[in-house]
Design a protein around this nucleic acid. Structure first.
Lengths: 219, 219
DNA sequence: TCCGTGCGGTTATAACTTCTAACGAACGTG
DNA sequence: CACGTTCGTTAGAAGTTATAACCGCACGGA
């Protein structure tokens, strides 16, 4: 059987260089954005010149795709960890999401930011995305659901393939979607700086939205 | 006094070329995103070569800044028009926002998408942004406000500078912010294609969020 | 009407970028 | 020890933004 770690010394070295390249790329993205990522600059920082990086990544797009994959993986891990630590609590998940986003805004935008029109995300990222959604659904299913069924929940009843067989009631599905979209709404505008000139505290707006989501007022 | 339109034939020509450049830029952005905007390609399309465009725009960043300005202006006009036509109705504003966004997703992302870390928006765009917020506040102030004051509304009481003197109660300010962030949350995820593989209808999710905002459940 | 200023467009050039191709050296495995 | 894969190099093509220098024509004042 093939052991994933440290087989040949060449593979060890190759993995090490790959992670260093990605690390430099993350630093560069955090300071100047993903559009300003330069393979030449990374190579120069690492002491080697230009086309050497093409031994490790197919090109700029491949590197960015790998970074997107890592970002998804990091968010999924953070979500899973806080879910296990807090017993599937939605407010804990929300604060974990905000902390993860504030830790590196450009990493958040790499996942949820402006898409490149032609770009198609690799299918494994959608798999990780559904893993994130699964832990979110676990937390939302634990909330009490009251109120009458809305027309949108009737729509969800017939379109719950994205839940991947999760046995959550339609109200919980709706809660999960609202959790996702509302917190993303506040977070993305905050990270983009749209609140900076307004004087309001984004954390309090985030908390207000979270109170509304976790409170008794379903949908 | 200086008439703004059509003074000298030189200025007429200059304005015409400028608008044609911006038009080609919009087409290019709509199909390949703002990061793929190429001055050379625009010049080649217009039959003139390369550096001629620098007579009309200071550079790529200046052109994009101008496009951002136009995008803000377009959204503000659309908002104002529907507000006047519908009598400051929030659902009409919401549908106008969604239609405006779906008409050219990259134009929406040019305003509300991933920001470039170093970039500072010119102050006139923030002026237009506050104009948009004003018409939104007009519509939110027309809604009935019930329920007790939340801690966030208490925070808003002390930080209402962004309302630019608009005489809306804190509940209306909160409504306007929720309107903005929630609809942006659904819209940006929809435009980015994050719902495409899930099978759900973004329009119905948008409608559900709008029902929650315009309904009786304040905050 | 005529003439000069200045505007618009050109080519050339510099400094970048991604990415391919060909070559050499070093490393590790048989 | 020798051979082969892999890594890093330099060279080069095809792009990009942006600046500089130059030329001609059109516009506007006299």
């Amino acid at each position: 059987m093939v052991n994933s770690e440290a087989k040949t010394p060449r593979e060890r070295y190759r993995a090490q260089v790959r992670t260093e390249i990605k690390q430099r790329a993350w630093e560069q993205i955090a300071t100047a954005g993903a559009s300003a990522l330069s393979l030449n600059a990374i190579a120069k920082q690492m002491g080697m010149s230009g086309p050497a990086l093409y031994r490790y990544f197919g090109g700029r797009d491949d590197l960015i795709t790998e970074l997107v994959r890592d970002a998804y993986r990091s968010l999924a891990d953070a979500f899973r960890a806080t879910s296990e630590a807090s017993g599937a609590d939605v407010t804990a998940l929300a604060h974990a999401l905000r902390a993860w986003a504030l830790r590196d805004p450009q990493r958040y935008f790499l996942i949820y930011g402006t898409p490149v029109p032609g770009y198609q995300a690799p299918d494994d990222t959608t798999a990780i995305s559904s893993e994130i959604m699964a832990t979110l659904l676990d937390a939302c299913a634990a909330l009490p659901s009251d109120g009458p069924a809305t027309p949108f929940e009737a729509h969800l009843e017939g379109h719950r393939d994205w839940a991947a067989g999760h046995p959550a009631p339609p109200a919980a599905l709706h809660r999960a979607l609202a959790f996702w979209t509302r917190l993303h709404g506040v977070l993305s505008l905050e990270l983009a700086g749209h609140f900076s000139g307004m004087g309001i505290d984004p954390a309090q707006l985030f908390a207000a939205e979270l109170d509304d989501l976790a409170g008794t007022s379903a949908t």
